[in-house]
Design a protein around this nucleic acid. Structure first.
Lengths: 364, 364
DNA sequence: GAGATTTGCGAGAACGTTCTCACAAATCTT
DNA sequence: AAGATTTGTGAGAACGTTCTCGCAAATCTC
């Protein structure tokens, strides 16, 4: 009768049962160093009989790496973007033998700071961070000083030299403007989600998230190219909370010469517009048009479907992991700025106005 | 000039700088054992000067616990349910000083097995599992034999004695049937997502997920109570993939006496119905009615809003964490089956037919 | 003020692994 | 067949903590 051990078997138990030393048992299990094939067999059998599984914490301790990466992200459920990114990152990491420790920051810089500290304390081998703001980056510098590889996801931070994977939101938004123009739209509403205490206003806040900045610049560039004048544009900056977006949408719609199309920089805004339109008996794609960002099943399934600027989330996630692991395996890689293309998916939410001559730019 | 250490400072460096022993430094940092207040101060200062942060891996090694829990979940982006649950779990864990290692199984039992093994190897202090099927549970038994606390999330597994947190999907679906009946509906379609290779058929598959089982039973119970006869019910079981749901929806709609309302057991199915309805120029809430499961921003924002059976995801997540941590802190807790209530949120997707007498049950 | 208790601290083991080194046995050279 | 090399193994250190113990100094007790 085998004696019942209270806790899990260790390599020492395996070594004893196989009649070899700890070192040899470890070599046999780890498949490294010089060791006789027969011994490996013997140790493996002993391990199997005992149900031995190596203790990864002890291993991490000795080897100085945990095969774990830390992900500091914002959770946003309106928008499957970060959820899909999370999945892509988790899956990609797994396929390389890494696990992921996740922390959610809710766009809060203090939470981000704390999350990063905790993950470093837990000795993750590298960090993927979605920075909640471009304004603060001393904590990111601290990561780098600690020697941990760091990759920024979806948002650039100036002042930090780190590999950054983003999407081409500039061109994406430009394309959206162009599409709307081609469909005959001449009065544009632009609804910009701006984190920070801005309430809702037409005044552009100073510091923002790079992806949002890119969308703003893309919008301006598109308008400039097509000769869409400032008076044909209604901008609205709006905090992404429960109250302000409704007010912002109402302001856009209640203008004397209301826009025929509204572009939004995130799906919260788009959904508020949808809701408001529904309440006012305005039909999307007919009475009011909409283009938003990020494709989703609901955007595709609605009638009419919502025209979106889609981002390659899965690629974004897997490339991010690959870059991070490359830096982990061989520190000192050159920091890259990788920008993946966006794609305009035209659906029915943009009305075709080309037959209405009163919308021609001449009238402005 | 201080000598630049290549790697992070350890407790030994702190001890040296403070002029005390390793043990004393550790006591000062950890705030345990007998130690003079003045010494604590001295050590703290030395630690701060060096930027010392305790190595959590070493700590885990010594203490035999990692303050990390493992989450084995399925990622499902149609449906924010599991994403919101993930966030709730991550946040709740953090508030108790725990971090979360996440693995996604994609409903695959082999992936689930492997994920559990990996997480145990990583010495998580406990596991939260969304079992991909109720049919297999030897791997869950293995977890328990390992002595790791285990809590099941959202789905019951018979044959395993473990605390299980679920929602009352039975009553939720029953309430949905009752609501539809009250609105005058007498011909019910029931679209059931069934994992496994069932394609699309009216034949009920054998083994399923408990939440889906509950919905089926709730539907049957509701129909029985209200006297809705089998010929007034059209059932369709359907694999949740890219092809079959469309066929299943078409089959439901193409019947000679098509249902006036369709209940779906998940949002994939609901979105396919929405899409098909749109293509056929059927207006939701007028030509065809719909009730699905889980509230979401899009369900609320659409025009008309979608009537749903909502589940208290955040509570589900935080209670799950609390139960798991209770078991971690004091092993040997009694396994509980916790069932949280659901809530029917009535919106416009259910047409009011009470004025159409031809739909009265007499006609059947 | 002598014994009993409390206080504060250090030495060293322990957690489970891997890695370096040394060394004997086996095999290869010429 | 004697030296050189290769092969296989074990002893012991190391990773960075915490914890148990023991002991001296300080304080209490009557």
């Amino acid at each position: 009768m085998a004696i019942q051990k209270s806790s899990a078997p260790t390599i020492i138990d395996v070594a004893e049962r196989a009649g070899v030393s700890r070192a040899t048992a470890s070599r046999a299990m780890g498949g490294y160093g010089r060791i006789a094939a027969q011994t490996v067999e013997q140790v493996r059998r002993a391990a199997a009989e005992l149900g031995y599984r190596p203790n990864e914490v002890a291993r991490a301790m000795r080897q100085g790496r945990t095969r774990t990466i830390g992900l500091v992200i914002i959770a946003d459920f309106t928008n499957a973007f970060f959820d899909r990114a999370t999945k892509a990152i988790v899956d990609a990491a797994k396929s390389h033998g890494y696990q992921v420790l996740i922390t959610n920051t809710d766009e809060d810089i203090a939470a981000e700071r704390q999350a990063i500290e905790t993950l470093i304390d837990k000795q993750v081998d590298g960090l993927i961070v979605v920075p909640s703001t471009a304004a603060v980056h001393d904590h990111l510098a601290t990561v780098q000083k600690s020697g941990k590889p760091l990759v920024l996801f979806d948002r650039r931070v100036d002042g930090i030299v780190a590999t950054t994977i983003t999407t081409d939101d500039f061109s994406g938004t430009e394309a959206a403007v162009r599409h709307a123009y081609a469909m005959g739209h001449r009065r544009f509403g632009f609804l910009v989600a701006a984190a920070g205490n801005y309430g809702h206003s037409t005044e552009r806040p100073a510091v923002m998230i790079s992806s949002v900045e890119d969308r703003i610049n893309g919008f301006m560039s598109g308008c400039a190219d097509l000769g869409i004048k400032p008076k044909q544009q209604s901008w609205m900056f709006c905090e992404d909370n429960a109250r302000d977006p409704e007010i912002a949408v109402a302001k856009l719609l209640d203008q004397p010469k209301a826009p025929t199309i509204i572009l939004t920089t995130n799906n919260d805004m788009a959904l508020v517009l949808l809701k408001t339109a529904g309440n006012r008996r305005l039909v999307i794609g007919k009475d009011i048009s909409l283009i938003t960002v990020d494709d989703s099943q609901w955007a595709a399934a609605m009638a009419p479907g919502i025209t979106v600027v889609a981002r390659p989330v899965e690629d974004l996630g897997s490339i991010t992991v690959e870059k991070l692991l490359a830096e982990i395996d061989a520190p000192g890689q050159k920091a890259e700025k990788i920008v993946l293309p966006t794609e305009l998916i035209a659906r029915g939410s943009v009305a075709n106005l080309v037959m209405y001559p009163e919308n021609e730019p001449e009238n402005y």
